[in-house]
Design a binder for these strands. Structure first.
Lengths: 123, 123
DNA sequence: GAGATTCATCGAAGAATGTCAATACAAGCC
DNA sequence: GGCTTGTATTGACATTCTTCGATGAATCTC
């Protein structure tokens, strides 16, 4: 009787934070905002997003809030206008989230002895 | 009368595909599956996921289907068991999606003349 | 063939999300 | 002060997502 596979493969670390970061990027309009901010040399006015995106103003504000709460962008008020810019570590944090998933780091911290695995056919 | 900012900042390219990829990673259990497959040397049996994740079997199957439909993982049946592995280009595709957002490439393809920008205060 | 096991699919319930109209808040101007 | 403009928040609705029980499909053993 053999196991179907290596006994304890499944990683069980909590990836809620990384999943939340990816969820923040899981909307094309938020990607457009991030892409705009990443390409902009200066801060970008909210009014540019309300004018440039096919969304109403409250929806734009909603997406900006989600990005801000995720720590990916930062805001600054200048008089009547509010300007947004990419957070300095935005890209690094997204890259780190990706690396956590695809790099085989931290080997012994997440395994669990899965002693009731299936058996393998003769094949 | 001055503009509040550079006239045509907002990117308007369709990022539905990239957003869909990020949405696929926007769940901690799917991240655990990907992380497991990335760390595994061999293919991983579905039974390992149903045993190792705090989810019922139909839910595990659902997540595997989403990952498979996104092209991030591949399946292979061996007799009764089904084995999954990371798609060869999975990481590269996620990296490309990230780069599209944060790299300032393809400068002239996405701008739109936003001629009705706000004005800037004297400051 | 019948029965058992593994995995996928279906259908439904609850939660989360995207969107917008209405409204509130903040700042500048008269 | 009141008025106007830019932005944020609230409340509601429709859609999507996560989850699970029930069921179906595929394969193996007897």
């Amino acid at each position: 009787m053999q196991r179907c596979c290596a006994p304890a493969a499944v990683r069980r670390r909590d990836r809620e934070g990384e999943a939340g970061l990816f969820r923040t990027l899981a909307d094309p309009h938020r990607l457009a905002i991030l892409e705009t901010l990443a390409a902009a040399e200066e801060h970008v006015c909210v009014c540019d997003f309300t004018a440039g995106l096919p969304l109403n103003q409250p929806t734009v504000s909603h997406h900006l809030r989600l990005l801000r709460e995720a720590g990916l962008i930062e805001s600054e008020r200048r008089g009547t206008w509010v300007y947004y810019r990419l957070a300095p570590d935005a890209r690094a944090r997204m890259q780190a989230a990706l690396d956590v998933v695809f790099d085989d780091l931290a080997v012994d911290e997440t395994h669990e002895a899965n002693t009731e695995c299936c058996t393998v056919p003769s094949r």
